[in-house]
Amino acid sequence: MRRLKRLPLVLLIGSAGFAAAQAPDQHLGRGLAASCSNCHGTNGVSQGAVPSLAGAAKADFVTKMQEFKSGKRPGTIMPQLAKGYSDEQIEAVAAWFATQKP
C-alpha cells in the first residue's frame, strides 16, 4: 500500500515544482530503463544475446514482465529481477522503452 500511495505524491510534486520539459513520470521511466541497460544496452539497444528493448510494444512488454513476475514465463535472471519492480514501475518503464528507436 505504501508504494501505491507514493506515486500520486511524486506526481503532485511534479506538477507543482517541476518544469514541463522534465515531467517526473518521464524521468521515472528513463531512470528505471537505465537500470535495465547494463544487460539490455543503452536506451534498450542490445549488443548481443540479450534482447533489445528499444521500441518494444508497451502492452507486450508489460505482459512479459508480469509473466516473469508471476512465474508463468521461464527464464534465468528475469523472473528474479521482475519480482523487484512494482506494477506502476513496469508500466512506466514499458512506456519509456516503447518510445525509443530500435
Partner: peptide, 28 residues
C-alpha cells in the same frame, strides 16, 4: 522482498548471457 536469487546449477546458457552482459555493460 521476494526478488533476486541464484542459478539452480551451473549451465552453459548463462555462459552466453555472461558475455552478452559484458558486451552490453562495456558499451553502456
Amino acid at each position: 522482498p521476494g526478488s533476486g536469487g541464484l542459478s539452480p546449477a551451473m549451465n552453459p546458457l548463462e555462459g552466453e548471457y555472461a558475455w552478452a552482459w559484458a558486451k552490453n555493460i562495456w558499451a553502456d
